[in-house]
Design a protein around this nucleic acid. Structure first.
Length: 511
RNA sequence: CGCGGGGUAGAGCAGUCCGGUAGCUCGUCGGGCUCAUAACCCGGAGGUCAGAGGUUCAAAUCCUCUCCCCGCAACCA
């Protein structure tokens, strides 16, 4: 039994999570569930990033304290995770004392070692917004330099700040990335990191701010608070009980280094350059893999609140159920390229794969088992045929895909025997066999094949759709929670229940 | 010459590394079946593989150039 530590990025607690944020959590959950299924000792961490200027200002706008504000958002997020059956083992909030205390110590340790130093941060400041912007962010126009948020003029300002000596780690980072081809996934992203950032020369990054106060204070220098990087990234170790002094908690000793960090492609840079460098400075082993997943687009547009095209998981789950929602994002999102969601695509995918293929296969197989054998299907000998061979082959390919985090391929593999089994019914025509008493054993073998295919699918699809697969397994007379090496039973005692995946009729749902 | 991804049937994609009759899903048209959630199964139609040139017996695939779309461009949560 191997240990397996997997994380999502912590979600910034400034607004309610949309389907894009939820995708990351569901994806990670499915991988974690797969590893639990194969018997690994899994720890799945997720959480909320709760500091920073944006939150400070959002709270002020609402007239509440930043703490009250993030309490609400963080709770809202956990409700969404629960709704989507995201079964995490740990949840970290960066405003928790256990986290803030260790962040202070990490900062001090890095400062004492000389990895953090004090300097001056030059930036463009928007007075009405009270916000700093970088040279690259500001909008240049005939009227001078303008704020990218509000379009008003910005002024050049300098503030004292602390920096992390990232430049000192360039060589070690390059070496690590080259020696560990799986460290950054997908590969195309790796090239981006190396060619786009390391080769041109890494610059030290700013780890403190004085322009806001909602953050972890730097004790040796009042007025300074820790800026995002050291604070947020270190969640992956503070949540396990890392202690800068070396007296680490049990979880840390057991689970670090992380096996996979799952995060959006936009923050990949921080997790493949900043985070490893911070860990090197702390003399800790690096995570084994960092996976930058693609974005979910609404049709062909970027999903955003301001465009008004954001789709929320809560709405999808309420209308179509948790299984359809999880299935859609896991089946439809490619490995490396951005995927998309529209209501039409969603309904079509769920109806075709879940209602027509899987749900209908269960329905017709179980109904026939009841009709022809009163629900008891125990052949004298376990049949061997092409369909059951495909089940075994798919299982192997599914596992290979899962190991590579190729979720779309894994789900497709899991569904392959289901598609084959529907054809098998036509080939064997059980309703004809049923008319001939001498063919009873043959019929029993056909039905056993169908039921065993459903069982095999219920195992592979369990990480994707835990609720529906549990129900399917009940109908098959099996325990709701499967194990990976589950043997095919001698026979099945089935009982038909409600349709697992009712067809979605657009008009009804919209009405 | 900033970096990267992409342009293949009405739609969405695979195939490109390791050249050899262009494939999948949805849609569409026709047929079959009746166990099933008007589901399932079989077959047909539909593509000058962005364009031009080159290498080759043979190019979606290799080389060169051109056009178009989309991300990212440094302290953005």
């Amino acid at each position: 039994m191997a240990k397996f530590y997997i994380t999502t990025a912590i979600t910034y607690a400034s607004q309610r999570p949309h389907i894009g944020n939820t995708y990351e959590a569901v994806f990670t959950d499915a991988v974690a569930r797969y590893h639990k299924l194969i018997g690994d000792d899994v720890y799945f961490l997720t959480g909320t990033d709760e500091h920073g200027e944006k939150i400070e200002r959002a709270a002020e706008k609402e007239g509440v304290s930043p703490q009250d504000f993030v309490n609400r958002i963080s709770k809202e997020l956990r409700d969404v995770w629960d709704l989507c059956m995201v079964e995490y083992d740990g949840f970290i909030r960066t405003s928790e004392p256990r986290h803030k205390e260790i962040v202070k110590r990490i900062f001090k340790k890095l400062y004492d070692r000389g990895d953090i130093y004090k300097s001056v941060y030059d930036g463009w400041y928007c007075i009405p917004d009270e916000a700093f912007h970088t040279e690259a962010q500001i909008v240049k126009s005939e009227n001078g330099n303008l704020c990218p948020d509000c379009g008003r003029p910005v002024e050049k300002l300098s503030e004292e700040a602390y920096f992390f000596r990232l430049s000192a780690y360039a060589e070690r980072l390059t070496e690590h990335i080259e020696k560990n081809p799986d460290f950054i996934q997908p590969d195309t992203r790796k090239n981006e990191m190396v060619n786009g950032y390391i080769k041109p020369g890494l610059q030290d990054f700013c780890v403190s701010r004085t322009s806001f106060t909602w953050g972890v204070p730097i004790e040796s220098d009042p007025g300074h608070v820790t800026y995002v990087w050291v604070d947020a990234l270190s969640n992956y170790i503070t949540a396990l009980g890392y202690d800068a002094g070396g007296n680490h908690g049990e979880l840390f000793q057991k689970y670090w280094p992380c096996d996979v960090h799952v995060l959006g492609k936009d923050v990949l840079r921080f997790h493949t350059l900043y985070w490893p460098a911070l860990l090197m400075a702390l003399e800790l082993p690096l995570p084994k893999k960092v996976f930058g997943h693609p974005w979910i687009l609404t049709g062909s547009d970027k999903m955003s609140k301001s465009l008004g095209n954001a789709i929320y998981a809560t709405e999808l789950v309420e209308k179509y159920g948790v299984d359809c929602t999880r299935y859609y994002v896991l089946r439809e999102m490619p490995f490396a390229r951005d995927g998309s969601i529209t209501r039409e695509q969603f309904v079509s995918r769920c109806n075709t794969d879940l209602a027509n293929d899987l749900g209908n296969l269960a329905s017709r197989s179980i109904t026939m088992a009841e009709k022809y054998f009163g629900g008891e299907v125990s052949p004298a000998e376990k049949p061997q045929n092409e369909v059951l061979e495909l089940c075994a082959a798919s299982r192997t390919r599914y596992a290979e895909a899962m190991d590579k985090l190729a979720m779309q391929s894994a789900v497709t593999e899991a569904m392959a025997p289901v598609v084959r089994a529907n054809r098998y019914i036509d080939e064997t025509a059980p309703w004809i066999l049923a008319k001939d008493n001498e063919k009873a054993e043959e019929l029993r073998c056909v039905l056993y094949t169908l039921l065993d295919t459903l069982r095999a699918a219920s195992v592979l699809l369990y990480p994707v759709m835990p609720l529906a697969c549990g129900k399917l397994r009940s109908q098959l007379g099996l325990s709701e929670i499967p194990v990976w090496d589950e043997p095919s039973p001698k026979g099945y005692t089935v009982k038909r229940g409600e349709n697992l995946f009712p067809r979605i009729v657009m008009e009804e749902v919209e009405a």
